[in-house]
Structure formats: C-alpha cells, structure tokens
Design a protein around this nucleic acid. Structure first.
Lengths: 334, 334
DNA sequence: GTGAAAGCGCTAACAT
DNA sequence: ATGTTAGCGCTTTCAC
C-alpha cells in the first residue's frame, strides 16, 4: 500500500504539500497541485482513513441504535438516516439493539472510544446514563422517533398525543363509543403519549374510558393478532380497534376475520405509521402517516449541526402527522 | 480523555505493560495486572479505538451494501448480519445503495481506505470491478442473496431455480396452465434463475411458455399491482400469478380484487420470501420461505473466516428454501 | 515479566 | 507557497 510519503517522493514535494493538495487545494500552487495529483494517480494512493481519523480526531461515523430493523417503520427511518449521512459525508454504524440496553450502551460507547462522533438513538433510552442527567459529559446524541420524556439532547418526534387524539376523534365521529386500544410495549413514552391522546378524545366526547379496552402489544403482527383475540373475547365487544402501529392492525384484522366478523362492517380497525402495506391491505388501512425518512434526515442534520457547532434553530423538532382515512374504518352499525 | 500513558503512570508501570494487561493478560503477573486494572478503573480509561485500529491495521468494521433496506426481506438479512457481526465483535457500516453503482463503489472503497476490513454485498454487482476478474487484488468480500453469476468471492445463496420450479410445479399440480410471472428488475441474475426454474417446470409438464405471461416488476407493492393489471388485461387471462416476492404478490392481490375477481377462486397468487406479512394477508400467501437472517449470519461467518484465514468448508453456500402452501393458491376451477 | 523505544500514516504548527 | 518536524495513542519488537 502506498502512503503519503511515497507520493511526496514521486512528486518531489514534502508530505505536507501532498496533504494540503488533498485537503485544501487552494493553498497550493496549480503547478505543484498537478504534479501531486499525477503522483497520487500514479501511485494509486488512497489516504489511510484510520490514520486520518486518528490524527484529526474526527471519524465521520455515526452510531445508529435501532430497536428492530425488521420493523418497516424503522427500516424507513434508517433509510433516511443513511441517505442524509451520505450527503454530509458521514458513515452509519448500525446496531439493531432489539431493545437490549446493554447492547445499546456498548454501541454508544463507541463514541467515547473515538470510533464514532455521535449517536442517533431511536428509542427512549439514554445509553449514556452515567453521564449525569445534567448532560454535563454527554457525547453528541440525537433522540428520534420514540424520545425521552426529559431529553438530555435534541429530539425529533411526532406529536403522538395529538395524532392519537385525532384518530380517536375520527372513530368517535363514526359513532364508535367502545374503542379498543392495542398499545405498544410497556414503559414506552410513545405509548404513554398515545394513550393520553386517546383518553383526551374520549373525555372530550364524554365517553367513559374502560381499562379493559386497553391491550398490551409489541408492534408485531402476532401481537396485534393476539390482542385482537383478547378484545374480541371481552364481555362488551368494542366496535373499533385502534392499534398503535400498522403491523398490529394487520394482525388484528386477520384475527377479526377468523372470528367470522367483517372489517369495517362489524369492527373498524385503525393503525399508525402508514407503512406501504397499509394502502395495500384488504381493506386498506386507516392510519396516521408519519414522515419516517424525514425523522432520519432531521436526526442526522441535528447531530451534524452539533458537531460543527452550528446553532440549531430548534433542538426539539416535531414533525407533522396526517390522518389517512381508508376503508378499514366505517360508521358503526346499530 | 485519559490515555494509556496516564494509566501507566498511575499504575507505576510502562505503557507496554498496560497494553499487555488489556490484550494478553496471561502474559502479565497477577500482581501487576491488578495494579493496572485498578489504574484503568481509576482513570476511567477507554482505549482509543482509532489509535488501536490504526496501529494494528484491523478495523473490525464490515461494509454492508444493501439494495433497499426498506424491503422487508433485506431488513431481515441485515438483522442477521448485525447479530452475527456483534457476536464476532465486528461492527456494521451500512449503506443503502438503492442500486446506485457509484454509491456501492464508493462505500466498497472504504476497505481500501482502511476504514473497514471487508464487504458484504447483497446485490449481484462487483464494486471492485477494477480489481480484475481474476480476483487478484480483490479485497475480502462475500456476496449474498443475489449473487454474481461468476463470483469472484464466496457466496451465500438460494437455489432460486429449484425454488421457482417447485412453486411452478405446485401451481401446475393445481391444474393451472396459464401462469403469469411477475419478475424482478431487469438484469438481476436472481430473476433470471427464477424464470429458468419456472420454464423448467412448464417444459417438464409439456406446457408451452408464453412470453406475454412474463411481466417486469421491481419488488415493490406498487409494481405488483401494476403488473397484475397488465396480466389481467391480456387476451387470455392467466389463472395463476407467480410473483418473485411477497410484496408484489400482495400488490397483485389488491389489483385482482379491484378487478372484481377473487383470490384464489378466480386467480391463484404465489409469492416468494415468506415475509411476516405473508402469513397475515388475506388470503394468507403461498410462498417460498427463505432463511433471511441466516443469509446474513453466514455471510458474516464467511467473511470473518476470510480475514482470519480459517479455511471455509464451503465457499459457495446454498441455503434451503421451503414451499409454504397457504390459502392464496387453489385448484383451477373450470 | 517488564521496560524502552520505534514507528504506524497522517495533520498542523511553525519555519522559511 | 512549501518544507520541517513533532506528535496523535497505541502495539510490538527487542532488550533486560
């Protein structure tokens, strides 16, 4: 492997000049530049990034912690992250954490180990808990999608409460009064917010909330299927199911059909996320669209701004959602 | 940030001893080891990975080139890659290439730039084309899923031809004679193999192949929808659609329904991949199951074996597939 | 078993 | 505009 010294010899200049030619060409005379570039070409020289990064104390790597990459929504977020990172000339170190905190901590440590410049965390967990909640010695991090309640760092999120409220209002508007809620995993702020929005809407409509209508899920098809089974078995069956993501909604629809009931005629089903499958389901799914790729892009932008000391116009971004009404929800029939 | 020298001073030993304590503890006396470890603790020392990697010329990074991470199948493969990489103490540099060759080349170059030790490429494209097809100066690479016809490197693949043949035989066995094929993007060997398998089966059954029955797709829901539209419009409508992935099959089902036809009563639909949605569709999708995560795991194993000079028992792995018959295919009705 | 010291390839301060 | 040089933090001979 040829190194900078070989190139310098070939071009008859010093290593400093080679380095400058590559990093700040304007500070080198055109003549020298041509000579150096020719030598670079001839030697087939490619800078050793390990050395560059080591020396300049910048890796241009970002650690991305994703709870489950096999989840369609997260896959889209990652896609946005990767796209933006590429545009800023950063690379993505991906970790599919499966929600295991020790794994998240270990990967986040890569920043302290000088293997990455910052972290994008897509789950509401601070992998730098030891840094003190004051954020005194917090490495650069951005929290996106499911964000911490009291964020020690910039966040990009949805107004989950408002979105859930809108969806619940949509269902109430169709005449539904018993609305089952299939929620996400325990302890997720995202789920807490959405429940709050659901309750806001019910309260505003003067409808009693019934804890029996709220079922735990975990964002998988199977969880939606199982939870729907529970709701169907409840003494006073709900006429609508609001699922906290589209996968669970699709799972729920399957279960409802197996019970010999029709969607939306007997039971309306709503999802959340608007994954591509939502539009192609039968019936097409009423859901809340989230700008998944935009979450990723903004997260990268905010993180890079942190590195490069740009002041952010906003450190807590809320991206817009949109209620998408399709065929899986309909007026309640008496 | 504390470095190895600080730790050495604290422990009253040389930097060499600190390094040895961390990398080959058995070569250090228990007493010294304790002293050093205590000093490491006290200093809050974490080795600078940039320096370690620079010095030892090993990054423990793997570049992964994925055509579309938002594709459920690939997301599962990535999940397997990430899991295995973690187990071997490697990190994953992810690139969602969207099939753009210049992006693939640029990322693959990270290996030559000493930023990664090897590449896992999930598409049939050699990003090191300049290395000479003899593979003389090919950096370590493993090709998985959609592999090159004449691979310059180890591969992990499915027997796509056999799988497609099996599926076609399944449809023929149900009495279908006009079987539409919705294929993947142009120029993909994967698609070529599957068409070959489809034709093998037809030929063996003495059924004429009809080029009009083969439609181009691109593995998206929309492509399946569109292609199904075309097939439905053909003068002699097929009684079965074989789609080269599940997304397109789900898109096709939607289109078929919109035409007022029933699946499988009027038209049988088969997919490929067995993504989680396949089982939750209506009707549940007949498909070919692929061990997606296993592709990822094996790819990592083979790549790591290359680095560490383990001889591989096989450099061209073929993983098993399985025909999964569900409700979307049925006997043709006269 | 431990230490001294060279040096990986590069950048950046300083000198010219 | 260009060259000289001192490291960055670590691993790894080579002595002892």
């Amino acid at each position: 492997m040829s190194n900078i010294r070989k190139v310098a010899e070939l071009a008859g200049v010093s290593v400093a000049t080679v380095s400058r030619t590559l990093k700040m060409p304007e500070r080198v005379s055109p003549l020298t530049r041509d000579r150096v570039l020719a030598a670079v070409e001839q030697a087939g020289y490619r800078p050793n990034l390990m050395a560059v990064q080591f020396r300049s104390r910048k890796t241009r790597n970002l650690v991305v912690l994703v709870p489950v990459i096999a989840n369609v929504f997260f896959a889209r977020v990652i896609s946005g992250i990767q796209e933006a990172a590429q545009a800023f000339d950063y690379r993505v170190l991906l970790c599919d954490t499966l929600g295991r905190e020790e794994v998240e901590v270990a990967y986040a440590e890569l920043v302290r180990a000088h293997q990455a410049d910052g972290v994008i965390q897509l789950r509401a967990f601070n992998p730098f808990s030891d840094a003190g909640s004051d954020g005194a010695c917090m490495p650069p991090m951005v929290n996106a999608c499911e964000v911490l309640d009291i964020p020690p760092c910039p966040t990009v999120r949805l107004d989950n409460r408002a979105a859930a409220r809108e969806m619940t209002e949509h269902l109430l508007g169709l005449g539904h009064r018993r609305i089952g809620l299939i929620k996400g995993p325990q302890g997720s702020p995202l789920t807490r917010e959405r429940i709050a929005g659901y309750e806001d809407a019910l309260k505003a409509a003067g409808v009693d909330t019934d804890p029996a209508l709220i079922c735990r899920g975990n964002f998988t098809l199977q969880a939606g299927y199982d939870a729907a089974g529970q709701l169907l078995a409840s003494p006073e069956r709900p006429t609508a199911f609001f699922c906290e993501n589209d996968e669970m909604a699709i799972g729920a629809i399957k279960r409802i059909r197996e019970a010999g009931l029709r969607v939306p005629d007997d039971i309306s089903v709503a999802g959340f996320d608007d994954i591509p499958f939502a539009a192609f389901c039968d019936p097409p799914l009423t859901t809340i669209a989230q700008p998944a790729e935009a979450f990723g892009r903004h997260a990268v932008e905010m993180l890079v701004a942190q590195f490069e000391q740009h002041s952010l116009e906003a450190t807590h971004l809320v991206l817009p959602h949109q209620l998408i009404v399709r065929g899986s929800t309909a007026a309640v029939t008496q």
